[in-house]
Design a protein around this nucleic acid. Structure first.
Length: 848
RNA sequence: GCCGAAGUGGCGGAAUAGGCAGACGCGCACGACUCAAAAUCGUGUUCCCUCCGGGAAUGAGGGUUCGAUUCCCUCCUUCGGCACCA
């Protein structure tokens, strides 16, 4: 049975039913919301089509993986984004706000292994369910632009993009030590290995290293450009995360020469990367990574046994053990020597596992006096330590107790003695800069930059992904599938076995094909692509989904791109958000798109935590189900509460009591507009105060929408509602100010609570459908102005009184009014003020 | 260790070109309505004291200023990222 809000019941009691025409004015979101959603859909109210006469706004929110159930986090990300898109639309923009599904991925495939249900079947079932849930939000998604990444009409173009990257040398295959998740049974990109325990981003299992031949995208080619955020209005934290991830370091490459008759002249030249070329004269030994290819050749017979043992031990250790920072340094002398090119010194070559084959050249020059790791190593193995940077003003070097990494003057450094060194990196450091110039003149080194960033490994040994459209032939090697044969379809008849091999590899016939070059028998690549490849271009797919001529329509691209506002979680900072920027730049260089960046403005929402402040998770049983909330309160209330309960970018714990307050506000809005017996109208009602509050609220709500400050939008609307209730008591109903207030109120409410705003606008006020096609109201600055202002008066920094003056009062007038106050006089104790400050017409400060 | 974000009532939070700290809401208390409860409406609600008045308070301490949640310095705590990166 429907429960009527008590306020309405109370009204009904004082007004016997027979004396009033019967009209259903109960607040019933469960009836109202689906009704309006159906009408909006039937009327194509949110269809976004190119309209050159209007400015466009492409608002994008991250698309969900079809897990089968929309959770409160989706609502938190999407409904405030929707409200802002609606606000932009009311401001006159032609807004595109699309939605789709990132539909390939491991969960569906893992579930298939468990229960045998085909990932495709499950995925489409989940999509159907989630589409319904998404529609219950009442968002302005243009469903005609929906794109599903596992649809062959979509992944056809994912494959096509791969081929373009391949043709332009941006996709390549190489053998290397790669990260492998033993639980997901697939390789991973470096970005998808998380934290110091090096766990899989998806399942949390520690990854292991495997030597495998895999497909990569040349993301590192764009390392420098990806560090440039000039065109982007992105949160500082995301820019910092990406900058750290790319890990650019400036320095020099220097050639050392290994002394060995086993090596050719070419082979004997070993390049090292250093950020401190100014310390070259202090390089007293070299260290190679144990896996370094020259180690075998330079090891002397006397040292061979020790070196082999150390290499074997290093190989056995996991990366976690090896990378533990506090681990004591270990290493072995190879018996070999090299020449330090700057001073001709003969220095020993060691191997140690603190030097990584995967960074720089896998070999370093060790400067124990000025590098903590080298210092520890030299102390342990009793290697020479030569000071080459001395703190300025210090005369004689004592024995070094620790590596000195501060500023100073170069000593023991031949031609550079006396050169100043500061703590800047690269060319900004006079010492480093001078040495680099000299190295280049001497032909023994050059300026160089090194990155932490790695190329993107995109091969996955899984079934449920876009096939990598490549064919291997014994004779012709790897070649792309001819473009007119795309898409390479995923076969449906595969076996689910947790073998660790892709089902595609086990399929009896699928991989057999012919070589596009010689026509002879050949095999398809059986790995599929990382699903981040699919999501790297979904914003383009929305432009013209399932286009069969091109990945997207050019006219659509020219009108809508770039994405103006992108919203989503920060967890993608170094994954999706970096991949999609790379992808866009690559497409630009291949002539497929224009512009340097795909998404201009980015905003991240925070996280909704469980009521106990812990992370929500099914296993903890503390999840908040949006469907239940919609049933209980209606979507409008859930939307409004999500905007209200926290700073959007921060997030906060859920509060099941708190939402009651928002529900109460929603009912109070309803009651204000539907009460059949409002207080009597006062013909002499002066609407100036009400108008002032309305336009002040409009001003702040407009500002807050622009700036994603959703919580203060709601509190402003709550305040104005309280004000309107007071005005009503004062007899405002029916006055022009009241009419204006109700109109503006509903327009401000429309982006937040689209259903209730529409119902009240169209059916209660009888205004023309639809409120969502109305323009955002203009602030009347005159009406918003105060005519008297109240100023606190401080005496020696303490508020003692308040004075009221006309808003246009001059400074002298305000000072006089302040001094006229009896309370102020009391605190002055008869003294003459030293100074009176009128601050911005906001406060008077009297100093005695 | 390095980089970043954040610390404000019982709770979520508001207020920064430096100007009334605690808007709005939750919770709580009291009152109205009710046979009663729920709902609704109203009032109050940072803390302390000698309570018609006064004092303290925005993680801690210092500084600049007539005035600091806001700016500067030194710490502390929490969260996130990176980490033997040469």
């Amino acid at each position: 049975m429907e429960k009527k809000p008590a306020a309405i019941q109370a009204v009904a009691k004082t007004q016997p039913a027979e004396s009033k025409p019967k009209r259903d004015i109960s607040f019933n979101p469960q009836e109202m919301e689906p009704r309006w959603q159906a009408k909006w859909e039937a009327d194509k109210l949110y269809r976004a089509v190119i309209d050159p006469s209007r400015p466009k706004h492409y608002a994008l929110t991250m698309l969900p993986y079809p897990s089968g159930d929309l959770h409160i986090g989706h609502w938190y990300a999407m409904t405030p984004s929707d409200a802002r898109a609606r606000f932009k639309r009311m401001q006159g923009y032609n807004v595109l706000f699309p939605m789709g599904f990132d539909a390939f991925g491991l969960p569906a495939e893992n579930a298939a292994i468990k229960d045998g249900i085909h990932p495709m079947k499950r995925t489409y079932q989940n999509i159907e369910r989630m589409r319904k849930q998404l529609k219950s939000m009442g968002a302005m998604f243009d469903w005609e632009r929906e794109a599903v990444s596992c649809d062959p009409r979509y992944y056809r173009w994912t494959e096509w993009f791969f081929i373009q990257l391949y043709k332009h040398g941006l996709a390549y295959r190489k053998m290397s030590a790669v990260d492998f998740c033993p639980n997901c049974n697939t390789t991973l990109a470096r970005e998808q290995v998380i934290g110091e325990n090096r766990v899989c981003e998806r399942c949390g299992t520690p990854v292991i290293k495997k030597d495998l031949e895999q497909w990569f995208f040349k993301t590192t080619k764009y390392a420098d450009e990806l560090l440039n955020f000039d065109e982007l209005d992105w949160p500082e934290r995301v820019k910092v995360l990406q900058t750290n991830w790319i890990g650019r370091s400036e320095g020099a490459e220097v050639q050392f020469t290994v002394i060995s008759d086993q090596l050719s002249v070419e082979e004997s030249k070993v390049t090292v990367f250093t950020t401190r070329p100014d310390t070259l004269w202090g390089a007293t030994f070299m260290v190679f990574a144990p896996e370094h290819p020259l180690v075998d050749k330079i090891t002397t017979p006397e040292q061979r046994e020790a070196v082999e043992a150390y290499k074997a031990q290093a190989a056995r250790q996991s990366d976690i053990e090896r990378e533990a920072a506090d681990k004591e340094k270990t290493g072995v002398f190879t018996g070999g020597y090299a020449i330090n090119p700057v001073n001709g010194a003969r220095i020993p070559i060691w191997i140690a596992d603190y030097v990584l084959m995967s960074y720089g050249t896998g070999a370093i020059m060790a400067v124990p006096a000025h590098d903590e790791r080298d210092f520890a190593f030299a102390k342990k193995y009793d290697l020479p330590i030569v000071e080459v940077i001395r703190p300025e003003g210090q005369e004689e070097a004592g024995e070094l107790k620790a590596a000195y990494t501060g500023p100073g003057v170069m000593v023991n450094s031949g031609p550079f003695n006396g050169t100043k060194v500061n703590t800047e990196k690269g060319r900004k450091n006079p010492g480093i800069s001078a040495v680099i110039d000299w190295l280049e003149q001497q032909g023994i080194g050059k300026e160089a930059v090194n990155y932490r960033y790695r190329d993107w490994l995109i091969s996955r040994q899984r079934y449920w992904g876009a096939p990598i459209p490549m064919i291997y032939c014994e004779k012709d090697g790897w070649n792309p599938v001819p473009e007119d044969q795309l898409p390479v379809l995923l076969p449906e008849d595969v076996e689910w076995k947790p073998t660790g091999e892709s089902p595609l590899k086990l399929h009896p016939t699928w991989k057999n094909t012919t070589c596009p070059v010689c026509g002879g028998p050949a095999e398809r690549e059986t790995d599929t692509m990382d699903t981040f490849m699919c999501s790297s271009w979904y914003h383009l797919a929305y432009l013209s989904p399932y286009n069969d001529k091109a990945p997207f329509d050019e006219a659509e691209y020219n009108y809508w791109m770039p994405v103006d506002t992108y919203t989503g979680g920060i967890e993608h900072a170094t994954m999706h958000l970096l991949y999609t920027r790379f992808f866009h730049k690559a497409l630009r260089d291949m002539g497929i798109t224009e512009g340097n960046e795909p998404m201009i403005q980015l905003r991240n929402q925070g996280m909704v935590l469980a009521e106990d402040h812990s992370k929500m998770s099914k296993s903890r049983g503390n999840v908040v189900a949006p469907d239940l909330l919609v049933n209980k309160y209606g979507a409008d209330t859930v939307r409004a509460y999500l905007m209200f309960f926290a700073r959007w970018e921060m997030g906060a714990p859920w509060d099941s009591q708190g939402i009651e307050g928002t529900a109460r506000w929603m009912r109070r809005v309803w009651t204000l507009f539907t009460d059949p017996t409002p207080p009597q109208t006062d013909p002499a009602y002066d609407g100036r105060h009400l108008r002032r509050r309305v336009h002040q609220t409009l001003k702040s709500v407009t500002h807050d929408f622009e700036n994603f400050e959703f919580n203060t939008i709601i509190s402003s609307l709550m305040e104005l509602l309280n004000e309107m209730y007071k005005a009503r008591e004062a007899g405002a109903v029916g006055s022009p100010a009241w009419e204006e207030a109700t109109e503006i109120y509903l327009k401000m409410l429309a982006p937040v609570a689209p259903h209730i705003a529409e119902e009240l606008w169209t059916n209660q006020l009888g205004k023309p459908y639809s409120i969502h096609q109305q323009l955002w109201p203009q602030v009347d600055e005159e009406a918003a102005k105060e005519d008297v202002i109240e100023l606190p008066v401080q005496v020696n920094g303490k508020v003692r009184d308040r004075i009221t003056v006309p808003a246009d009062a001059g400074e002298e007038e305000i000072k006089a009014a302040a001094l006229a106050s009896a309370v102020v006089q009391k605190y002055l104790e008869g003294k003459t003020p030293k100074k009176i400050i009128v601050a911005n017409k906001r406060l008077v400060s009297v100093v005695v």
